[in-house]
Write a protein that binds this DNA or RNA. Sequence first.
DNA 1: ACAGATATTAAGACTTGGTGCTAAAATCAG
DNA 2: CTGATTTTAGCACCAAGTCTTAATATCTGT
Lengths: 195, 195
Amino acid sequence: MNISKKQIRQQRLLKELEKNPFLTDEQLAQTLKVSIQTIRLDRLGKGIPELRERTRQMAENAQNKLQAISSKDIVGDLLDLELGKSGISMMNVTPDMVMAKTGIARGHFMFAQANTLALAVVDAPAALTGVGNVKYKVPIYAGANLIAKAEVIRKEDKKYFIWVKIRNNSQEVFRAKFIVVSLPNERIVLHEDSC
Amino acid sequence: MNISKKQIRQQRLLKELEKNPFLTDEQLAQTLKVSIQTIRLDRLGKGIPELRERTRQMAENAQNKLQAISSKDIVGDLLDLELGKSGISMMNVTPDMVMAKTGIARGHFMFAQANTLALAVVDAPAALTGVGNVKYKVPIYAGANLIAKAEVIRKEDKKYFIWVKIRNNSQEVFRAKFIVVSLPNERIVLHEDSC
DNA sequence: ACAGATATTAAGACTTGGTGCTAAAATCAG
DNA sequence: CTGATTTTAGCACCAAGTCTTAATATCTGT
């Protein structure tokens, strides 16, 4: 039965670290009521790195994720792109995109995927101007693999009319029509103070 | 002139750490061609903590930010809320919300603000279903302080028709109409596999 | 109940990336 | 050239480990 005692402790260890990854071996030893050495052995057995390494990984990881989420210009992975014509992107719905209460993905992620894909299709420093007929058809849950297809359906001077449809397992879950205006490069440099 | 030499070095130090915060004093000493002790003095003078502390702060910070950005159900700060009727929220446009090329805020942030405000007004585990007439009127740059006002303009059974307008300095920059359907609590618990 | 295996604890030497302190050497400025 | 400032150096110490070796405990099957 000692095996299970050990295993239970190791599970507890994992949970504690999930709650608070900044715990030292000493603190862990106290809360789990074993010696430091046992904690070290458990970490070794489970392949859990030491506090500093954990911290470092988190810092890097979170930094990357932040960049990916917020300062990247494409939300989702671009799979295919015909400039000025069409594009396809893929996005995985991760657990942190869903609402805590319901488990349903928050709508702006789909919107972001569609929006950025539309902007990618229009290659130009571009400002999105108008949208019509955005529709969420089915609620999405974590784990879904969303495929967005964008198509330019009309072009008038600087205005692009773009349809984006998102599917999950060949079921359409979202669609939007964007009107994107491609701006000339010059006016854009003055980026202090909105308007 | 030694004062300026020192100051220049300290500026370089800051820049190096901005590029890569994971540098040890030893590495910094090498790249700046001074002794470790000088680096330590410089850090002390500038109030820059040691590598581990920096890493820890980044990890915490980034984690918080991640949670704030992605797992929070409200994007922006809720200023006022009359359930089922109206709501007001505020969001600050930070530099990481803008497109690198143009400095213009990516549209899905405004969408997210409007969307989450609309969902907050309808208090219920709710799924957004349809949108019409989303309009981006003016490009937004970093530093803007966006005020979103949501108003329920019609209600049919479980469907709420909501207008959201976002203003920056009393200038309207965005508007959207959402149709939000409030779901009964029960159907929602089955949150494995979309659909 | 006892041997053998498994698990836990202990102890000591060493590592990284520092802090804090004192002191010497170098550089600069008037 | 002198005094102040800046830069190096050296040493003791710390946290949070690693790695190793060894001693206890605890369990398990017979």
